[in-house]
Design a binder for these strands. Sequence first.
DNA 1: ATCAGTGCAAAACATTTGCAGCATG
DNA 2: CATGCTGCAAATGTTTTGCACTGAT
Lengths: 153, 153
Amino acid sequence: MTTMSHQATSHDWAAHATATLAEAGYRRGGARSAIVELLAKQSCARSALEIEDALRTGSRRVGRATVYRVLEELERLELVSRIEVGQQTARYEPLHPDRTRHHDHLVCDGCGDLIPFRDDDLERALQRVSARLPFMVGEHELVLHGHCAGCRP
Amino acid sequence: MTTMSHQATSHDWAAHATATLAEAGYRRGGARSAIVELLAKQSCARSALEIEDALRTGSRRVGRATVYRVLEELERLELVSRIEVGQQTARYEPLHPDRTRHHDHLVCDGCGDLIPFRDDDLERALQRVSARLPFMVGEHELVLHGHCAGCRP
DNA sequence: ATCAGTGCAAAACATTTGCAGCATG
DNA sequence: CATGCTGCAAATGTTTTGCACTGAT
């Protein structure tokens, strides 16, 4: 099975994230919740600067340093995953506790579009490989480069 | 089959790279060949700064800007591949025309070590997925995160 | 001689850190 | 009312660009 769309039920992620943060002893900072809410609404990974921008014109202005600090915390708590697709800029997206929500990415080298996809067959192959390696494998990050329908060379 | 070592027969890559560059109309610049020779000797991916450093104490001093410019050309000609493993630094390694030389990477989140590996099973699974997607897939970049034997948490 | 190739210094970005003030618990 | 949270500005580190000069053809 291969799925191109990844309709995230964002609400429960926001709730999960908020709960996890509270449990970890974090206070209810306004900037932090603004970032969590924004991330929950995104359909794909966003860079720190994009997040800062979106917040500037949106719910609440948040300093750049804070954006980076919050993203770092969220990553440490495994609430977001950080991906890099080659434009020397890190991007972040919600990470669901439910492993079946995991997906990998397609990057169109023509227009730069970032498209999530999921393939169970592939995930199983990755599990098998991980077991074979003399290495304790945790997360993986897979990016397929190519051209989307609109950008065929 | 899973292989951890990746003994590159570096000589032919250097030759191939030089030939490709000549064919593409590039002149025989001294800095460029120094970079190609250095890359050919590496056992794993190097950052631009590491390359600059190695050259400073080695065969010939090469300016930083030149290192970046040459790596960009080599990447465009598909002579090197650029990989990013999450330390906000791009790394480059020789890309062999022979597809069977392709490999993916393991990153130890403990010591930061970058280890190449290859698994035919996985590569086949990737081929199958690529065919299924409504996308013209070219290269892929796969990084498995985890802990090496020495860094078990 | 011409123009690609190169080095240096400065610019442009992305990210991190220091510190002073605000606000939550 | 203590301390975590935040914003601002400055520092850091990587990559890119401008420009003058060198060297291959």
